[in-house]
Design a protein around this nucleic acid. Structure first.
Length: 576
DNA sequence: TCGACAATAT
DNA sequence: TATATTGTCG
C-alpha cells in the first residue's frame, strides 16, 4: 500500500531518498541536520515547531519515513510529539537532545522513540537512521505473518505462555470469565496471587484496548454492549464486567475528549497544546504495553506496542453535553463506527469515525491476538492529546465513509466557548452538524483535531520535501493503528513462526499495507542500552507476566531504579 | 485529599 | 445493560 517510494526498504536505492522530517526549534540545528541528512541522500523536511510537524505529518500521512525530533521545544514537548506520531502515524521517531540523562532517554523510549541521539549529532548516527525504518518494516512483516498464522493456526498454546490471550477463543468458558467464581481462583494467571483476596485488576493495555475498540467498531457504537464486545474480543480471561467497566470508562473518555478538543481549539487557535500537564485531562489512560519479544531479532529488545489506536467512535451519548452547554446538540444518532480517512482534515469531518474498515480486513478474521504471549509492560500513555490522535487515525484509515461527515469545514470557527472545560456534547456523534461545527475542533471528529493544525503549520514549517500522500497508505496505517499489535506475540509463537528467519524473504513483499503494529520501541532498547536495567527488560521475565494483569506489578513501579516511573515488571511478580 | 480506574452494586 | 458507587492506587 505504501506508495512511498520508500515503501520498501529493499529498494535498490534504499536508504537513499529516505524521507526524514526534522523537528527542532533551533534553526541552526535544523540547518545542520538538514545538511547532514541530505548528505546521506535523504529527503529532508525541516520544521521548527512540533505542532507544525504534526500538521505536516497529518497532511501527508505517508509522506515521511522517519521523524527526528528535538526533545525541548517551546510549543510542544518533544515527547508529546513523539507520542502523537506514534499514535497517528506509526512512524519511527528519533529523539535528540543535548541532555542525555537516563530518565529522559527512558522517557523517550517510553513514549515510543526508536532512538535517542545526543547533540551534537554526528553524521555517522544519521547515516544509519534508515535502520529504524527498516526494522520497523521487518517487524511489520513479522506481525503480519504471525497474524496470519494465528488465524490459520489458531494458536494452540496457552498455558505455558501464560498468556492470557493465549486462549483460543472467545468461546471461552463462561466460567473463566466470571470472576466471581474465581475470586479465589481467577485465571491461572491470577493464581499468582491467590493470597490476595483481591482480584487482580485488569490492566487495559493498549493492545487490549485496541481489541476493545475493534470490537466496538465492529458492533457499531450504537449497538455496543459489554457482552458483545467481550465476545468479539476473544480474550478468554476477560469478563463481561471488565468490559463493561472499560466501556464505561471509554465513554467517559470520549466525552472528555470533546472537552479537550474544545480546549485545544481554543487555546491555540485550533492547535492544541499538549502539555504533559494536561495529560490527565482527557487522556485515556491506556497503558502502553511494551512487548518484549523473546524471539525478537534483537534480543531483549522490546517494542512498544504503541498502537494506540483509538477509535473515535463517537460518543454514544454525549455525556457531558448537557453539562456543557456548549455544544448544542446532543448526539442522538447512533454512532457507528466508521472509518474515516480524511486526507484533508480541514475539509472533512466525519461524525463518527471508526476503524471498522480497517479491521475488516483483519477483524473479520478475528485473529487471536490474544495469543500473544509476550508480556507487556504497561506504561502509561498520556493521551492528553488523544482526541487528535484518534482522529488522526481515523483519518488515516479511511476514506470517509461518511455519511457522517457532516461537518462543515467550519472548524475554523470553533468556537470554543470559553469553556475549554466544557465537554462537547458528544464526541462523535454527531449527529448534528451543528455540534460538529462547534466541536469540530475537538474530538468530535478526529479530523477536526487535525484540521487546525494545518493552518498554523504553514507558518512555521518549512517543508523541504513533500511526498505525495498516498491514500492507500492510509489504510495500512489504519490497520496498524488498529492495534493489531503483533508485537505482543509471544515468544513462542514467534519462534514457531520463525518469522525472523523468513523476514528477509518477506520484506520484499512488505507493503505498507502490512503494517500493523508499532514496534518502534523495539529498537530503542538496543540503542538505548536498556540492558543496563536488565531487571526491567529482561525479556524472560517479562514474558512471564500475564499481560494484562499488572496490578500486582504496580507495586514495583516504585522501583527506585526507574526514575521516570517506568513501569516495570519485576521478576517473580507474576509467576504464572 | 483528589482524581483516575477497575470492580462491584444497583 | 447502563449507571452509580466503592475500593485502590498514585
Amino acid at each position: 500500500m505504501m506508495e512511498n517510494g520508500f515503501s520498501s526498504p529493499r529498494n535498490d536505492t534504499f536508504p537513499a531518498g529516505l524521507r526524514v522530517l526534522v523537528v527542532d526549534d533551533d534553526p541552526t540545528w535544523l540547518k545542520i541536520l538538514e545538511k547532514m541528512l541530505k548528505k546521506c541522500s535523504y529527503e529532508v523536511t525541516t520544521c521548527g515547531l512540533a505542532r507544525d510537524a504534526l500538521c505536516l505529518l497529518r497532511e501527508k500521512k505517508d509522506g515521511y519515513d522517519i521523524v527526528i525530533s528535538d526533545v525541548n521545544m517551546p510549543d510542544m514537548d518533544g515527547f508529546k510529539l513523539l507520542e502523537h506520531v506514534g499514535l497517528e502515524m506509526d512512524l519511527p521517531v528519533i529523539m535528540m537532545s543535548v541532555d542525555g540523562e537516563t530518565s529522559r532517554v527512558m522517557k523517550g523510549v517510553q513514549h515510543g522513540a526508536c532512538d535517542y541521539l545526543l547533540k551534537p549529532i554526528r553524521m555517522k548516527e544519521l547515516r544509519n537512521i534508515w535502520q529504524h525504518v527498516f526494522r520497523k518494516r521487518i517487524h511489520e512483516v513479522r506481525d503480519i505473518e504471525s497474524l496470519e498464522g494465528f488465524e490459520s493456526i489458531q494458536i494452540p498454546r496457552y498455558g505455558s505462555d501464560q498468556s492470557d490471550d493465549g486462549y483460543l477463543f472467545t468461546g471461552e468458558d463462561p466460567s473463566m470469565r466470571k470472576r466471581k467464581d474465581c475470586e479465589g481462583k481467577y485465571d491461572e494467571r491470577d493464581c499468582g496471587d491467590p493470597s490476595s483476596s483481591k482480584k487482580a485488576r485488569v490492566v487495559w493495555s493498549v493492545d487490549l484496548h485496541q481489541k476493545f475498540v475493534q470490537a466496538v467498531n465492529q458492533i457499531g457504537f450504537d449497538k455496543v454492549g459489554p457482552k458483545r464486545i467481550l465476545d468479539l474480543m476473544n480474550v478468554p480471561w476477560l469478563t463481561r464486567e471488565n468490559v463493561a467497566s472499560h466501556l464505561q470508562k471509554y465513554r467517559l473518555y470520549l466525552s472528555r475528549l470533546q472537552k479537550d478538543d474544545n480546549e485545544l481549539t481554543t487555546s491555540a487557535g485550533g492547535i492544541k497544546h499538549t502539555d504533559s500537564s494536561k495529560d490527565s485531562a482527557g487522556g485515556f489512560g491506556l497503558q502502553n504495553s511494551m512487548n518484549i519479544h523473546h524471539n525478537d531479532v534483537s534480543t531483549g529488545s522490546y517494542g512498544f506496542s504503541g498502537s494506540k489506536s483509538f477509535v473515535q467512535n463517537l460518543n454514544p451519548k454525549s455525556l457531558d453535553c448537557e453539562k456543557k452547554g456548549i455544544v448544542s446538540e446532543p448526539i442522538t444518532e447512533p454512532k457507528r463506527a466508521l472509518i474515516v480517512d480524511i486526507p484533508n482534515p480541514c475539509k472533512v469531518r466525519s461524525s463518527q469515525i471508526g476503524f471498522e474498515s480497517s479491521f475488516a480486513s483483519l477483524g473479520g478474521s478475528q485473529v487471536d491476538f490474544t495469543a500473544f504471549g509476550s508480556t507487556t509492560i504497561p506504561t502509561r500513555y498520556s493521551w492528553s492529546d488523544v482526541p487528535e490522535v484518534l482522529f488522526r487515525h481515523e483519518s488515516k484509515s479511511t476514506e470517509l465513509e461518511d455519511g457522517f461527515s457532516q461537518l462543515p469545514p467550519s472548524r475554523s470557527q470553533h468556537h470554543i466557548q470559553a469553556d475549554h472545560i466544557k465537554p462537547v456534547p458528544s464526541i462523535s456523534s454527531s449527529s448534528s452538524a451543528a455540534d460538529r461545527s462547534n466541536h469540530a475542533n475537538h474530538a468530535t471528529s478526529t479530523e477536526s483535531a487535525i484540521d487546525p493544525l494545518p493552518v498554523q503549520t504553514k507558518n512555521h514549517i518549512s517543508i523541504t520535501n513533500h511526498q505525495a500522500f498516498d491514500p492507500l497508505s492510509t489504510t495500512a496505517l489504519s490497520m496498524k493503528s488498529q492495534g493489531f499489535n503483533l508485537s505482543c506475540i509471544s515468544d513462542l509463537e514467534s519462534t514457531q513462526r520463525n518469522i525472523s528467519s523468513g523476514i528477509e524473504t518477506l520484506l520484499p513483499s512488505l507493503d505498507e499495507d502490512l503494517k500493523f503494529c508499532w514496534l518502534q520501541g523495539d529498537y530503542l532498547a538496543m540503542n538505548l542500552g536498556l540492558q543496563d536495567f536488565p531487571e526491567y527488560y529482561d525479556p524472560g521475565i517479562v514474558s512471564e507476566v500475564p499481560i494484562h494483569l499488572y496490578d500486582a506489578l504496580r507495586h514495583d513501579y516504585d522501583n527506585p531504579c526507574d526514575p521516570t516511573e517506568y513501569p516495570l515488571i519485576e521478576q517473580g511478580l507474576f509467576i504464572v
